[in-house]
């Protein structure tokens, strides 16, 4: 691997987005190239700081789901669940801008199958 090739892979390695084989090739190169080694260390440090910075950004506000639900699956008006762990029936009635969708699903041994959508 050349230094140019290594420099192309270093940001990906720092971002943890490099395949195992490419990662092994890069490490083999930096183990005998101090210039790329320094660049890799700097990139790893930058990657760590960027992940921490992005990770500290706030998440979506609490009420966002209700706005999305009102335009898609409907705000929950009624939910009925019947049955046991082996088999059950679930009925949901929602409210959207255009109506009140009713959905039902049947679950058997943990597998859920939609059976009703009005």
């Amino acid at each position: 691997m050349t230094c140019d090739q290594a420099r192309g892979l270093i940001p990906l390695y720092a971002a943890r987005a490099l395949s195992e084989s490419d990662g092994a090739g890069l490490i083999e190169h930096v183990s005998r190239c101090t210039v790329c080694q320094t660049e890799l260390v700097e990139a790893m440090q930058l990657g760590h700081e960027l992940r921490a910075t992005f990770g500290r950004l706030p998440g979506a506000p609490e009420g966002t789901w209700l706005s999305v639900a009102a335009r898609t699956v409907g705000m929950p008006l009624l939910q009925v669940d019947l049955g046991s762990e082996m088999a059950g029936l679930s009925l949901n009635v929602g409210a959207t801008r255009t109506g009140t969708p009713i959905t039902g699903s049947l679950s058997i041994l943990g597998r859920e199958v939609p059976v009703l959508r009005i």
Binding site: T72, V73, T103, S105
Partner: peptide
């Protein structure tokens, strides 16, 4: 297939990530 519960689960997986992505781009909550 129209499964509302699956959609809620998908929302839970992606809402915060999409919000952070949009915030990074737009810088406006």
């Amino acid at each position: 297939r129209g499964d509302g519960r699956a959609f809620r689960d998908l929302y839970e997986r992606f809402a915060d990530r999409v919000f952070r992505f949009a915030l990074t781009l737009l810088r406006n909550r």
